Deep mutational scan, measured.
Amino acid sequence: KELVLALYDYQEKSPREVTMKKGDILTLLNSTNKDWWKVEVNGRQGFVPAAYVKKL
């Protein structure tokens, strides 16, 4: 599985998104969309802005 690092805090704005804190390590589930990547964090799956994370 591929991991990404949260570069910034992000507060979810819809049920399809997830909240993350700067420094969190997230599991990358899908990065086919250039703007929104699907990740898993704390057992929850959802989208975060691709610009807010970096592949490890």
Rank of each mutant, 00 (worst) to 15 (best):
K1E: 11
K1W: 15
K1T: 13
K1D: 11
K1N: 13
K1M: 15
K1P: 14
E2Q: 13
E2I: 14
V4D: 00
V4Y: 13
V4G: 12
V4F: 08
V4M: 06
V4L: 15
V4S: 04
L5Q: 14
L5M: 13
L5I: 13
L5D: 01
A6S: 06
A6C: 09
A6D: 00
A6F: 01
L7S: 03
L7V: 09
L7M: 12
L7R: 05
Y8E: 11
Y8G: 06
Y8S: 10
Y8R: 15
Y8F: 11
D9S: 09
D9L: 02
D9Y: 05
D9N: 09
D9T: 06
Y10N: 01
Y10F: 08
Y10E: 00
Y10K: 01
Y10D: 00
Q11K: 15
Q11V: 12
Q11L: 11
Q11E: 14
Q11D: 12
Q11H: 14
E12C: 09
E12T: 08
E12N: 08
E12Y: 05
E12A: 12
K13N: 11
K13G: 08
K13F: 06
K13R: 12
K13S: 13
S14R: 11
S14M: 07
S14V: 05
S14W: 07
S14K: 09
P15D: 13
P15A: 12
P15M: 10
P15L: 09
P15C: 08
P15N: 14
P15H: 13
R16G: 13
R16F: 14
R16N: 15
R16P: 06
R16C: 11
E17Q: 14
E17Y: 06
E17W: 04
E17P: 05
E17M: 05
E17R: 04
V18N: 05
V18P: 01
V18W: 06
V18E: 01
V18I: 15
V18M: 10
T19Q: 05
T19E: 04
T19H: 05
T19K: 04
M20Y: 02
M20K: 00
M20D: 00
M20S: 01
K21N: 10
K21V: 09
K21E: 07
K21I: 10
K21L: 09
K22I: 07
K22N: 04
K22W: 03
K22P: 03
K22Q: 12
K22Y: 05
G23W: 06
G23M: 03
G23Y: 04
G23D: 07
G23E: 02
G23Q: 03
D24F: 05
D24P: 00
D24C: 05
D24L: 05
D24H: 05
D24I: 04
I25P: 02
I25G: 01
L26D: 00
L26F: 07
L26M: 15
L26I: 08
L26W: 02
L26A: 11
T27R: 15
T27H: 12
T27S: 10
T27C: 08
L28E: 00
L28K: 01
L28A: 02
L28I: 05
L28H: 02
L28F: 04
L28Q: 01
L29K: 05
L29G: 01
N30K: 07
N30H: 09
N30Q: 11
N30M: 10
N30F: 08
N30C: 09
N30T: 09
S31H: 10
S31M: 11
S31G: 12
S31V: 07
T32H: 13
T32W: 09
N33R: 10
N33P: 05
N33I: 06
N33M: 10
N33C: 08
N33H: 14
K34C: 08
K34W: 07
K34V: 12
K34A: 14
K34P: 14
D35F: 15
D35I: 15
D35A: 15
W36K: 02
W36A: 02
W36R: 03
W37R: 02
W37D: 01
W37P: 01
W37T: 03
K38E: 14
K38M: 14
K38Y: 15
K38C: 10
K38S: 09
V39R: 00
E40H: 06
E40N: 05
E40Y: 07
V41T: 13
V41L: 14
V41R: 15
V41Y: 14
V41I: 15
V41K: 15
V41N: 11
N42C: 10
N42R: 12
N42H: 11
N42F: 09
G43C: 08
G43D: 09
G43V: 04
G43T: 06
G43R: 05
G43W: 04
G43K: 05
G43I: 03
R44I: 09
R44E: 06
R44Y: 06
R44M: 07
R44C: 06
R44H: 09
R44W: 05
Q45E: 13
Q45H: 10
Q45C: 08
Q45Y: 12
Q45R: 12
Q45K: 13
Q45L: 09
G46V: 04
G46K: 02
G46D: 01
G46I: 04
G46R: 02
G46H: 02
F47Y: 12
F47V: 07
F47N: 04
F47A: 03
F47I: 08
F47G: 02
V48C: 04
V48T: 02
P49W: 03
P49D: 01
P49V: 02
P49Q: 03
P49I: 02
A50G: 04
A50Y: 02
A50Q: 06
A51L: 12
A51N: 13
A51H: 12
A51P: 08
A51M: 12
Y52A: 11
Y52I: 07
Y52P: 00
Y52T: 08
Y52L: 14
Y52V: 07
V53S: 01
V53Q: 00
V53I: 10
V53W: 01
V53D: 00
V53H: 00
V53E: 00
K54F: 13
K54E: 15
K55W: 07
K55P: 11
L56D: 04
L56Q: 06
L56V: 13
L56K: 04
L56H: 07
L56S: 04
